[in-house]
Design a protein around this nucleic acid. Sequence first.
RNA 1: GCCCUGAUAGCUCAGCUGGAUAGAGCGUCCCCCUCCUAAGGGGAAGGCCAGAGGUUCGAAUCCUCUUCAGGGCGCCA
Length: 582
Amino acid sequence: MKKQLQKLLYQSLQAIKSEGMEISIEKEDIKIEYTRDLIHGDFASNIAMLLAKKNKCNPRELANKISENLPQTDFIARTEIAGPGFINFFLNQNAYLSVVLDILEKGTSFGNSNIGNNQPILIEFVSANPTGPLHIGHGRGAAYGDAISNLLNKIGFDVDREYYVNDSGRQMNILTLSIWLRYLELMGKKINFPEKAYQGDYIKKIAHEIKEKYADEFLISNIQSLNLSNNKNDEEEMLDSMINSCINELGEEKYTVIHKISLDSILTSIKKDLSDFGVTFDKWFSENSLMKTDSLNKCVSKLEINSKIYEKDGAKWFRSSDYGDEKDRVIMRENGQSTYFASDIAYHVSKYERKYKKIINIWGADHHGYIPRVKASIEALGYSPKVLEILLVQFAALFRGKKKLQMSTRSGQFVTLKELVMEVGKDAARFFYVMRKSEQHLDFDIELAKSESNDNPVYYIQYAHARICSVFNQMKEKKYAFTKIKNISDLSVLDEPQEISLLSSLAKYPDVIESSAITYEPHQLAYYLKELANYFHTYYNANQFLVDDEKLRNARLSLIDATRQVIKDGLLQLGVSSPEKM
RNA sequence: GCCCUGAUAGCUCAGCUGGAUAGAGCGUCCCCCUCCUAAGGGGAAGGCCAGAGGUUCGAAUCCUCUUCAGGGCGCCA
């Protein structure tokens, strides 16, 4: 509808232009907005005020002129000039009513568009290290990423969801060590378990599984070699030396077995937690595969050829400062190991090589300092940094009551996503997460989320859906007939104010979807659904649907049937279910 | 120190690329089921949009500064 009005205004302006007035504006720049109040009509444009400024003429006069030159249409009842020079558009009833037909006809595809033109787009999100269960912060990224994926899909992009698995590197070694030490404990050895190793109970559980399956296969004779290195000077150094002795004592082969079991076990539970949360990925991209296929080395040598790398203090540095980063970054450490950043470069190259037209990363906001160097590496390798869009999600600060919980994966103190979903339910958790702007800090009080779960807005929306379903059930019980309406004239009896409000709200849905998708702001959709549910509840309280007048009954049932469709589809985009009974 | 984010009703937050009297939920106070689920609806009270300048027909929205809050600045990931 906005686009149609835009077109009309453009045509009118062209007509005025041919009369000699100087007007230069692109059709896309003509702004149409929803009015806040229906007394100002349905849509308004400020175009006259904008052009009046440039041409130094009276905005109201210009507005009049534009209005007079608008082509005739069958959906505009009238226009009005208001305030300093707004052009207000009043739609005629048919324009409203047609949305019901449109929704019922299109069903789940109502609100779809082809803005994306089937372009392939990659969305990478969550990507938590496989060193422990997902916690509440990851849940936000998961809910947000999935909602955006759904929305972009709905406006015609070909979306791939990807999870980047950091399955190599030091963190994984610490994990392997932690599990092995717990295993040794289970085998009756006395172990000095380092504070900075992973402490969670899940470590012991995996150790136990290994014991069950492999018995004493990973037992070593001299535990002393481990504890000898236990000097308290530097915990981190101690971990590294313990990892080394672990590999030495076990041998590369056995170490790899434990490494793999640990990784598989944790990854499996991460996948399970996510799928219980309604989030599934098209691809789990392994960091390790970048090493295996040598693509990491290729990236480094390519940068070296372009002389974007130099050596200092025995390490290799990438000249990211050439591309606006604060300083240069190490990609190859003095000890010969590549950094996380090096893998990340190779990973992004892989994304570009897979020919995505748009690449979206969803990161925790604590990684924002990372953006310039990643963009720098992309540019240095000859790719367009514009294709890559990095969206930041603030982590949730956790509260239990008034007490803030400190979270740390290593110390094993955290509330997991799984626990959250068990406490507040999937629907509430998903909706809560996307209800607010992603870059806003979120104080997630678990107690509050639990205690208020009955007042949760998600139930309000779901309730509207369930109520509509209930009306249709009642209809059957009361033996009322419902014949599908065929044309607009069947709906012409809908003229109650609550009906007009509801119709007008339904008509906005495609615009809301589009806007939520292209701005990556699913909270817009969440707010819209609350508003839509409110219009419905108001309607419900003010009018009876199951009336004897057949024409009225059919029209009203069609209207709420369309409402049901939009609520269900909107919730679906956010990963929230639409129960038929509550 | 430098760089991000944010600051709107008692609380939690919306407010779309500047637009008409600043919105919602919760909480508080009234009212509404002989009726399709009251997990609902209607109404009232409640705001110097952190502060100060600037840009213009017009600013919660854009620019600058100040104050406050959270986060980031590793050969960690």
